[in-house]
Design a protein around this nucleic acid. Structure first.
Lengths: 141, 141
DNA sequence: ATATGATTTAGAATTATTCTAATTATAGAA
DNA sequence: TTCTATAATTAGAATAATTCTAAATCATAT
């Protein structure tokens, strides 16, 4: 998704495409990492001609999550990370570096998985709307 | 696991079985909920004859996690919860109430799941040591 | 030009957690 | 037992991430 699309996307979702919001969204859409609000603040502050405040970063991120252009990721204690990948997917956490890598979902398995949990827990009937897998491990060459 | 076992367990793991630690561990082992440190602090303060400080709760929880008698759960932003269930298992988050319910693992599926991710991501070779699934949804009767 | 409402801002407040340095408790040696 | 070394606990300060507040600024429609 490039800058032009972004502008359009904002308007379609009744969000004012302010420089701050656009720059934050653009930054997220152009990284494969999963930055924290603080990291986004640092990066975006360098790009913008005007100063930006942390509060704006938090506000903007909340809005972008709400309209569904980004997602929050919880893999560590007391740290929220943001993810441009809004497709249904999962995460691998490299326990040596802390790096978080997107992993593709496997739809066939998804169905089995959800059905299995429904069967396995007959006392409580879950209506599962989505799920997220966090894998922990290390990378080997 | 009852109180007597707990005492023994502590000694076996070279942990002094202090009243604070025992009460914290006992509280966790007797709940099916997934309390925060603050909730544990409140509950344990009522049970103990002497005062207890929050720092002790945090210290004790860290130690209990380290020796493997409890686990940390990250399902919400900026909140760590603790779980007595140290068997490999997953969580269902009731999106209406915030309640967290343990769900059993399904070992056959586990193998498939891990293998699938290895296949699906050929560029980076993961060595997966464990994984955790968070289901989101609601309970229906 | 101007009013209205939305957005952004700096900084204060809040929440969860960790740190610090002093005090207290515990287990083993005398 | 009493003593001693070490470990555990404490209150409160410090820190980190986030949210709140109220004022200032901006964009847009009149």
């Amino acid at each position: 998704m490039n800058n032009f699309d972004l502008n359009k996307y904002f308007l379609e979702h009744n969000l004012k495409p302010t420089p701050q919001r656009l720059t934050i969204a653009e930054y997220l859409l152009n990284t494969t990492s999963h930055p924290t609000a603080e990291e986004i603040y640092q990066a975006v502050a360098k790009k913008l001609p005007m100063p930006i405040s942390l509060a704006t970063v938090y506000n903007s991120l909340d809005i972008l999550v709400k309209v569904g252009i980004i997602k929050e990721v919880f893999t560590e204690p007391n740290k929220v990370r943001y993810d441009k990948n809004i497709t249904n997917h999962h995460h691998f956490v490299n326990m040596q570096t802390g790096e978080i890598i997107d992993v593709e979902p496997y739809e066939l398995l998804s169905e089995q998985l959800v059905e299995n949990y429904l069967l396995k827990n007959p006392k409580q009937k879950f209506k599962i709307s989505n799920y997220h897998i966090t894998f922990y491990g290390e990378l080997v060459e």
